[in-house]
């Protein structure tokens, strides 16, 4: 087991390294950050040469990569084109996004598994049909449509109706916020609620559908029939035999979908004007700020690969039938 984990860890590091190479080539070839400067006749060649040197644009691609990579693994992500340190901006935006993503993933996991098991137990009946219809509906609504619906047709009318702000629809916190963590908590909550609900709704539905299917599989299996025949109480059959087995495939699906949650977070941040990583990333892309784009993609790759690793290890822990050697 330990050998398996170590082998998986080593493999993840290799994938991460190759992923940075691929991403670097993609980003470096996607445009010239100095194009605007070059098209300006009042900027001298000397100035451009200095800036080229600063961004290492004069070096061959591989040297540029190595320079970036060797600094990035030590936590130095270079400078933005406005001469600001990228690392500082990254962690600031990262914290904002993390708040939304972690809450949403936790709630969506509980909701998805709960809804899935519920639907499977009500198989074919009204509860099953209603929850599956709802799941398919949410599966079909793009993130920005759910976000805009919640913002324009739920939060704003509600705020107007009760004549005070229940849900903030813009930004991750009030700019004038002061005081300790607990006095700021209500403000955080009122800002975070809608983006988290948006992310939960787009995420949980696929997990619920998957969980339902896995639970039905388990209910239909021979070992559950045997457990029933032995006279084990229905509640115990459900928790120990059905759900325990049905959770195994779903764990992998949830971990693999984490990249999707991060993608959804980009759109959610745009809809609700959050100054999170996604917004920062889009600004970086549109200004061709290579170091910002690279830092974002590196951090998300670390998280996605980390979650995949976690999924593999969880799989081994949850399913003792699989041998790893």
């Amino acid at each position: 087991m330990l050998a398996y984990i170590i082998r998986r860890l080593a493999y993840s590091v290799v994938v991460l390294f190759l992923s940075t190479v691929l991403v670097f080539v993609l980003v470096a070839e996607s445009g010239d950050p100095l194009a605007i400067l070059r098209s300006n006749p009042h900027v001298s060649h000397a100035t451009i040469a200095v800036r080229e040197k600063l961004l290492h644009l004069n070096l061959p691609l591989w040297d540029r990569y190595w320079y970036w990579f060797s600094h990035a693994i030590r936590g130095d992500f270079g400078q933005t084109i406005a001469y600001q340190p990228v690392g500082q901006q990254l962690w600031q935006h990262f914290g904002v996004t993390l708040r939304m993503v972690i809450l949403a993933t936790l709630i969506a996991t509980v909701a998805g598994i709960g809804m899935g098991v519920f639907a499977a137990l009500r198989n074919g009946r009204v509860g099953d049909r209603a929850s599956m219809t709802l799941n398919f509906l949410f599966l079909s609504i793009p993130t920005f449509v759910i976000g805009l619906l919640l913002k324009e047709f739920v939060a704003i009318p509600l705020n107007q109706h009760v004549n005070r702000i229940v849900f903030y629809t813009s930004g991750e916190q009030s700019p004038t916020l002061t005081g300790g963590f607990f006095s700021r908590l209500p403000d955080y909550a009122a800002h975070t609620a809608l983006p988290v609900i948006t992310l939960v709704l787009i995420t949980y539905s696929a997990w619920a559908i998957y969980q339902r299917s896995a639970t039905l599989d388990a209910i239909d299996s021979d070992f559950v029939r045997l457990a029933r025949a032995k006279g084990i109480s229905p509640g115990r059959v459900l928790t120990r035999h059905v759900v325990r087995n049905a959770l195994i495939p779903v764990t992998t699906v949830i971990a693999l979908d984490f990249a999707g949650v991060l993608g959804g977070a980009i759109v959610t941040e745009q809809v609700f004007n959050w100054q999170g990583m996604g917004t920062w990333f889009i600004q970086g892309v549109s200004t061709l700020d290579i170091n910002i784009v690279l830092a974002y993609l590196l951090i998300t790759a670390v998280f996605v690969i980390g979650f995949n690793l976690l999924a593999d290890i969880l799989y081994a822990v949850l399913d003792p039938r699989i041998r790893y050697d």
Partner: peptide
């Protein structure tokens, strides 16, 4: 395949979409 899946597909699309 693992490599392609290591970054959110939407993030890569944003970079390519800009192109």
């Amino acid at each position: 395949v693992d490599l392609v899946l290591s970054v959110p597909i939407l993030a890569v699309l944003i970079v390519l979409g800009h192109l």
